[in-house]
């Protein structure tokens, strides 16, 4: 579904990705693990179009999307849940959800929008109690849920998740990962970036290890869980 070939990305002229090639097959969960500054967010931003100075191929359903702007890429069915939530803090929860459906927010799509809204509220019931609350006043966990909910409103076929577990209590992390699992089971393809390697490998089919802008290891998630190097570097021995 998504195929990245020899992707390089630069901040000014400093490279953050030095030729990354990965593939995300349809219907799978693919995880990318790596330490701080490895280039994980840069990779996701390159795919979603936020990162503009890049070279190499990004093929989505055989179409090269590397030159498209972010607002076009989302219309193709790729939604990013950015690192650090990035919800619209001054708008209400409901406004955030509605903006997720911005591209098709028209009267004639009302029943679809209502159906999707119901669905995200079923995934995250706590949000339904807070529809009128100003999003910036939600707790960190609720904000993460809202960020995912908002992305789900965009009719995504591929979701890019950037560290959804960052700064959250274990119980909430489990809830978020269970949602990731559910989403995948209903057919959504997922590319997940995480520092919480254990959780990320448990939910994934396939995984990559990114170090200073390069893929150093890849394989089935189960294999990586048993890999001694991965154990030592990312799973705490």
């Amino acid at each position: 579904m998504l195929k990245i070939e020899n992707l390089k990305a630069f901040y000014d002229s400093i490279p953050a990705l030095k030729g990354v090639s990965i593939e995300v097959p349809q219907g799978k969960v693919v995880s990318i693990i790596g330490a701080n500054g490895a280039g994980k967010s840069t990779l996701l931003k390159s795919i979603s179009g936020l990162m503009k100075s890049k070279e190499g191929g990004i093929l989505y359903k055989d179409q090269d999307i590397s030159a498209l702007p972010a607002n076009k890429i989302v219309s193709l069915g790729i939604s990013q849940v950015p690192e650090g939530r990035q919800i619209f803090g001054h708008l209400s929860v409901q406004d955030n959800i509605n903006l997720g459906a911005y591209l098709y927010f028209k009267r004639r799509n009302r029943s679809e929008i209502e159906k999707r809204t119901e669905r995200v509220y079923r995934l995250f019931p706590i949000l339904k109690k807070r529809t009128k609350q100003v999003a910036g006043t939600l707790s960190g966990g609720e904000q993460q849920m809202l960020a995912i909910a908002r992305a789900l409103m965009g009719r995504p076929e591929l979701i890019l998740l950037d560290e959804p577990s960052m700064g959250l209590a274990p119980l909430i992390v489990r809830e978020i990962f269970s949602v990731i699992n559910q989403l995948n089971q209903t057919g959504t393809t997922i590319l997940l970036v995480e520092q919480n390697a254990k959780a990320a490998l448990n939910v994934a089919h396939h995984a990559f290890v990114l170090e200073t802008g390069e893929i150093v290891l890849e394989g089935l998630a189960g294999e990586l869980l048993d890999n001694p190097k991965v154990k030592e570097a990312y799973l705490g021995g």
């Binding site: 607002n71 708008l91 908002r150």
Partner: peptide, 22 residues
């Protein structure tokens, strides 16, 4: 929704473009 989208741009332009807002 356009008015909300304008507010969203003020709030966080990158996130706004991830919603498909130009």
């Amino acid at each position: 929704i356009i008015g909300k989208a304008m507010s969203a741009c003020a709030d966080n332009p990158d996130a706004a473009s991830l919603m498909g807002i130009n």
